[in-house]
């Protein structure tokens, strides 16, 4: 059978057309697979973030529960034991103590002061209880505790904060972050002045904690295990869709700024 030139051209033309179109489908498949790959990567990232948030959430809950237990133990257990001291002292017949009267009075005074200290500490540890009156009184209570050491010149600016509807979860996050910041200053900063500012703007509230201490390299410390306090502040803020920025360098003091949505 003789094949004409026209038929040869048609066969070759059609085959070539198929050979030209086939790669386009291969390329489309590569693009679609790559799109799925990106989607998978995004999902993996989201899952990892959710997992990390869950872990942090659990850790915070456990921490909060532990603090609450310690607070109850201090108040109900040790506090009760201590309150037995003034009670026992009051049962002593003053006419028989003679020369020891003054010392007994001193013991009584120390015991009462210890009871007050324990009660105050128990209240500070029990976040929910402390935050019942709001974030500002809670911060003031913590600062009053800090001022007892008379080591720091402390200022607390909250005029622009105004009255806010209480949100216990958000206030607890903010208050614990504040405590974390203050703990860092006490443990590492060697500061003499601490400035705290609580500000309320249109759609967000900001807490700033500044000190004039020795400062530290932020990036290096955040990467190290020793920077857990810093990491906690950053993660806590992220958990409630907020943002925490830490500005510091050796010798320049430290400024922690936590911004969260209202």
């Amino acid at each position: 059978m003789q094949i004409s030139s026209k038929e040869i051209y048609s066969i070759i033309g059609l085959s070539s057309l198929v050979f030209l179109i086939a790669p386009i489908f291969v390329i489309l498949y590569v693009l679609s697979y790559n799109k799925k790959k990106r989607k998978n990567e995004k999902e993996k990232l989201l899952m990892r973030q959710t997992f990390e948030n869950e872990i942090l959430h659990t850790r915070i809950e456990v921490q909060e529960q532990t603090l609450k237990t310690v607070s109850y133990d201090l108040h109900d257990n040790i506090g009760q034991f201590l309150s037995l001291i003034p009670l026992t002292i009051s049962s002593i017949d003053q006419s028989k103590v003679g020369a020891y009267a003054e010392k007994i009075n001193t013991i009584d005074d120390i015991a009462r002061r210890a009871i007050n200290e324990i009660k105050l500490l128990a209240r500070l540890l029990h976040g929910e209880d402390l935050l019942e009156k709001g974030l500002v009184p809670a911060i003031e209570a913590e600062l009053a505790w800090l001022n007892r050491a008379a080591k720091y010149e402390v200022s607390f600016e909250n005029e622009s904060y105004g009255a806010k509807e209480p949100d216990l979860a958000r206030d607890t996050f903010l208050f614990r972050s504040f405590q974390e910041g203050i703990n860092n200053i006490i443990q590492h900063a060697k500061a003499t002045r601490i400035e705290i500012e609580l500000r309320q703007e249109d759609a967000k509230m900001t807490l700033m904690i500044s000190d004039n201490g020795i400062g530290f390299p932020v990036a290096e410390t955040s990467a190290k295990r020793s920077g857990m306090g810093i990491g906690n502040i950053l993660r806590r803020a992220k958990m409630i869709d907020g943002q925490a920025t830490i500005s510091s360098a050796p010798g320049t003091g430290t400024q922690i700024k936590i911004t969260i949505p209202k």
């Binding site: 070759i12 085959s15 070539s16 050979f19 030209l20 086939a22 790669p23 386009i24 291969v26 390329i27």
Partner: peptide
């Protein structure tokens, strides 16, 4: 890919 695959028949 398209050029060399498409030109194979030719």
């Amino acid at each position: 890919f398209i050029f060399y695959f498409g030109g194979t028949v030719c």
